[in-house]
């Protein structure tokens, strides 16, 4: 499973300040921590980035890739910033990922960029009409997203469908719908469609001490349904990932399996 480190996000006060003040050291340090914890890719979430988005994304991509040999997930709604990130990205360690597009026509420009730079892209299963109510609505949107991607010349293999994890504290019934959606998304293609979640949104708004518990257990269930990628705090979930891989028979068991 593709593990994408979530910690370099504008949502975090410390990261936000480091971005504003262009403090390389903080960014590098968090990137290195996630790399050491087992991340395969680092998310650079710069938010809407309406001012100076291009320059900020460039700075983030180069700062992270100076610190760790990993590709970057480019997370912003600003397409110019995404393109700026794509241009400076070092593909030596893998292709970058565009985060994200959706069925909102304003976001179709992200499909264009994915096609132009031949990189994978995350497609959120949300349309103009707001949040999906259940798994079936998510699947309906997913089908349209796959068609849309094909129109732009993007192969199903380069599309990561995101069922949109919602907060357990406010939308408890949606957790089960997300699990079901992951299962159904996979069935939309052979080989199965790739799926991705932003895991920690599940526990957003919950007490700090129970957040990891919610995240880890939800991830285990998602992996059982066949999830291909997750945007997570790697240190928090690596034990779960290794354990579920063993239980699912994807990794051969050995007593020290957690140590490798």
């Amino acid at each position: 499973m593709l593990v994408i480190g979530e910690r370099l996000s504008i949502m975090s006060k410390r990261v936000r300040e480091a971005m504003q003040k262009r403090q390389k050291e903080t960014i590098r340090q968090i990137a290195i921590e996630q790399y050491k914890a087992g991340a395969h890719m680092i998310e650079a979430n710069i938010g809407p980035a309406e001012d100076n988005g291009e320059e900020l994304m460039e700075w983030m991509v180069t700062t992270i890739q100076e610190a760790v040999p990993l590709p970057i997930s480019l997370d912003t709604t600003n397409p110019l910033a995404v393109e700026a990130g794509l241009k400076v990205h070092n593909n030596e360690w893998g292709k970058p990922l565009i985060n994200s597009t959706s069925l909102d026509p304003e976001r179709f420009v992200m499909f264009e960029l994915a096609a132009k730079y031949n990189v994978p892209i995350i497609a959120l299963t949300v349309g103009k009409g707001g949040l999906p109510r259940n798994a079936e609505e998510r699947v309906e949107i997913a089908v349209q997203l796959i068609e849309k991607a094909t129109e732009y010349g993007i192969l199903p293999d380069d599309l990561y469908l995101d069922p949109l994890v919602l907060q357990i504290a406010t939308s408890q019934e949606q957790a089960k719908e997300v699990l079901k959606a992951v299962r159904l998304f996979r069935e939309l293609n052979d080989p199965p469609m790739k799926t991705i979640v932003g895991l920690s949104n599940l526990s957003n708004g919950c007490p700090k001490e129970i957040r990891p518990i919610l995240n880890k257990h939800f991830l285990a269930l998602l992996m059982y349904e066949g999830l291909s990628a997750a945007i997570v705090n790697p240190a928090e979930v690596m034990e779960t990932i290794k354990t579920i891989k063993v239980i699912m028979g994807n990794t051969l068991y050995a007593h020290s399996y957690l140590e490798i």
Binding site: L252, Y253, A254, H255, S256, E259, I260
Partner: peptide, 8 residues
């Protein structure tokens, strides 16, 4: 499994 463990 023991072969893997020993290698680790």
């Amino acid at each position: 499994n023991l072969a893997k463990q020993l290698n680790i």
